[in-house]
């Protein structure tokens, strides 16, 4: 999980110059190599019964991983926004709480946080409040990953908000808007362009970090890989397939992020 990167790449697709000199350098050779590797993998899956079985065993876990990553990311986005606004706020209470959250969560490894939330915090909460959802492993994983990522997303939001020139906020308030209205109608909509690409990248990160939930027995991809490996002792095929499936998910995610970056770059002065 790297820090926030609010840089936006402008569109360099060079429309209308497809056959010009630059195409040899600008063609996505890396994608071609991966595509060939993907076709090769696909063919070997079709040919080898072992790989086919492995793929069939692991496929349901892929959906669990995606669901987990999505749910955790929604939690992270909400927490991150609140923490960012809290840090910007001039009131001491929200800014202290927000700052504490960000510093503490960024200071503890994500795996440790996840284990802490799953084995220490939620059991206590379940006993105190009697809410049975706290005993659910998936809920715990979503909370653990969401809280863990929220602190990093908070910094992404904050950087995005602070990248909007002060003049915008001043103009908004001179028109009679409250700070909250200025934020909601003027600043945040503009900040979205800066925030979305790093947000997208962090989602791809989340897809990978969802593998940590295997430690608390959530049946996502890494856990299923362990299980298959323990049953069949075929580490080679199992983990080749696990890695391949993660790669496919993250590549699709990354391509989506590039699309986002281009959308964010449009219309910039």
């Amino acid at each position: 999980m790297a820090g926030p990167s609010p840089q936006v790449n402008p569109d360099v697709s060079g429309q209308g110059r497809l056959l010009s000199v630059g195409v040899l350098e600008r063609a996505p050779w890396w994608a071609l190599v991966l595509l060939i590797a993907g076709v090769f993998a696909f063919v070997s899956i079709r040919r080898s019964p072992v790989y086919l079985e492995t793929y069939q065993f692991l496929l349901p876990a892929v959906f669990v991983t995606i669901k987990l990553a999505l749910a955790a990311y929604v939690v992270a986005m909400v927490l991150g926004l609140l923490a960012a606004l809290g840090q910007i706020s001039r009131h001491p209470i929200p800014s202290t709480i927000a700052r504490l959250y960000v510093e503490v969560v960024r200071g503890v490894p994500l795996l440790v946080q996840l284990i802490y939330i799953a084995f220490v915090l939620t059991p206590v909460l379940a006993d105190l409040t009697g809410i049975r959802w706290f005993r659910n492993d998936m809920v715990r994983a979503v909370l653990g990953l969401g809280i863990g990522y929220g602190a990093y997303l908070a910094e992404v939001y904050r950087a995005g908000i602070e990248s909007i020139p002060r003049g915008q906020g001043e103009a908004a308030r001179s028109l009679g808007m409250t700070p909250w209205q200025a934020m909601r109608h003027i600043i945040l909509p503009q900040a979205i362009r800066v925030i979305l690409p790093p947000l997208g990248n962090d989602f791809v990160s989340m897809l990978k970090d969802s593998s940590l939930a295997s430690v608390i027995s959530v049946t996502e991809l890494t856990y299923s890989g362990s299980l298959l490996n323990a049953r069949t002792f075929r580490s080679f095929e199992t983990y080749n397939m696990v890695a391949l499936l993660y790669l496919i998910m993250t590549l699709i995610g990354s391509l989506g992020v590039r699309g986002l970056e281009r959308w964010a770059g449009k219309g910039k002065r």
């Binding site: 084995f119 059991p123 379940a126 006993d127 005993r135 492993d137 295997s214 430690v215 608390i216 027995s217 856990y223 362990s226 299980l227």
Partner: peptide, 18 residues
């Protein structure tokens, strides 16, 4: 069945009533 990477986590799970 809940499967963990080590027995101490399994026992922890038992003690936590999970």
């Amino acid at each position: 069945i809940k499967r963990f990477p080590s027995f101490d986590l399994a026992v922890r799970s038992l003690l936590n009533k999970d």
